[in-house]
Simulated assay, not measured.
Amino acid sequence: MDIGKKIILASNSPRRKQLLQEMGFTFEVRTKPTEEVYPKDLEAAKVAEYLAVLKASPFKNELEEIELVVTSDTTVIVEDEILGKPKDAEEAFEMIQKLSGKSHDVTTGVCLMSKDKEVSFSDSTTVTFRSLSEDEIKYYIENYKPYDKAGAYGIQEWIGLTGITEIKGSYFTVMGLPTVKLYEALKSF
């Protein structure tokens, strides 16, 4: 799929790479370290989009005329608390325990930036987990080591297959890219 721009995916996420590839786009991966901080008074649902824009900003002054950078961030929100990426197994356990037996929102924000244009948007999906036992949570953490995932889980992994009872919204938003919205945005960019 050619959009007339050279796409740069500013993410090391294997899931985002896979989704963008499966959408038919050719791209290169180029990342810049960005401290993921946001104003504490920012509404939880707006944090992912804010961080996606923040991740794009270091590219602003070095993009060529034909380049378009795509950045993204995913947040897991349960009872107005944002669950980031867990530091260790203990924190991953606590996070999954908070999600167990409840619904939560997963919001993925995206920013598209070229030399002279910037578009950002987000998409949210509601995910419901059945009640998970301590042994199930430990099994998942030990076998899948979800330390690179917001909320300490990947929907496409064992815990998603065995623990998620319902999703309202896009499965791919939970994986890390709202593919339909991204496709439309790239086409019209």
Rank of each mutant, 00 (worst) to 15 (best):
M113T: 06
S114G: 15
K115T: 06
K115D: 04
D116T: 14
D116Q: 13
D116N: 12
D116C: 10
K117P: 01
K117F: 14
E118L: 13
V119K: 15
S120Q: 12
S120V: 07
F121P: 02
F121T: 05
F121E: 04
S122V: 09
S122A: 14
S122M: 12
S122G: 09
D123V: 05
S124C: 12
T125L: 09
T125E: 05
T126V: 13
T126P: 04
T126E: 12
T126N: 11
T126F: 08
T128K: 15
T128Y: 11
T128N: 11
F129E: 00
F129W: 07
R130Y: 08
R130V: 04
R130C: 05
S131D: 15
S131K: 15
S133Q: 10
E134S: 14
D135G: 11
D135L: 14
E136C: 04
I137E: 00
K138P: 03
K138F: 09
K138H: 13
K138L: 14
Y139D: 11
Y139P: 04
Y140F: 12
I141G: 02
I141S: 03
I141K: 02
I141M: 07
E142Q: 14
E142V: 09
E142C: 06
N143G: 10
N143H: 15
N143F: 12
Y144V: 03
K145S: 09
K145C: 07
P146W: 05
P146V: 03
Y147E: 02
K149C: 03
A150F: 04
G151E: 01
A152P: 01
Y153V: 00
G154P: 00
G154Q: 08
I155Y: 03
Q156T: 04
Q156W: 08
E157P: 00
E157A: 03
E157T: 01
I159Q: 02
I159E: 00
I159C: 01
I159N: 00
G160I: 00
T162D: 10
T162L: 12
G163S: 07
G163Q: 03
